[in-house]
Simulated scan of single mutants.
Amino acid sequence: MSTATESGTSDTASLEPLHYVGIVAAVVSGAVHLWLGVSFAPSPLGISFLFAGVVFVAAAVGVAANYRRGLLYRLGVPFTAGQIVLWYLFNFAGGEKSFPGDVGTLGAVDKLAQVVLIAVLIVLLQRE
Rank of each mutant, 00 (worst) to 15 (best):
G95A: 09
T3W: 00
V57K: 07
G82K: 05
G30C: 09
L89K: 06
L125V: 06
V120P: 03
V115T: 04
A93F: 00
F56R: 06
F79S: 04
V55L: 15
L124Y: 00
A60L: 00
L34D: 07
D110L: 01
G53A: 03
T5N: 14
L121G: 10
L34M: 14
S98I: 07
G62D: 08
S48E: 08
Q126I: 15
P42I: 06
S2P: 15
L50P: 03
Q114Y: 02
A52Y: 00
G70S: 05
L72D: 00
T80L: 08
V61Q: 02
N66S: 14
Q126N: 15
F92N: 04
A59R: 08
Y88P: 04
R69D: 13
Y73V: 11
G30D: 09
V57G: 12
H33M: 08
L75Q: 04
V57N: 14
L18V: 02
H33Y: 04
A64S: 01
T3I: 05
A119N: 08
A4W: 08
G101D: 01
T3R: 11
E16D: 02
L106S: 15
M1L: 03
P17L: 12
P17A: 05
S29T: 11
L124D: 04
P42K: 04
V120H: 06
G94Y: 10
L36M: 10
A65W: 15
F56M: 06
S98H: 06
S39P: 11
L50W: 01
Y73R: 15
V27L: 13
G107V: 04
Q114V: 09
A41I: 11
L72K: 01
L86Y: 03
W35I: 15
H19A: 12
V54D: 07
A58M: 08
V85W: 05
T5G: 13
L117A: 09
V103K: 00
I118V: 09
Q126E: 11
M1F: 08
A4Q: 10
S2A: 12
H19Y: 10
R74V: 02
V57L: 12
F92A: 11
A58P: 07
L72Y: 10
A41P: 07
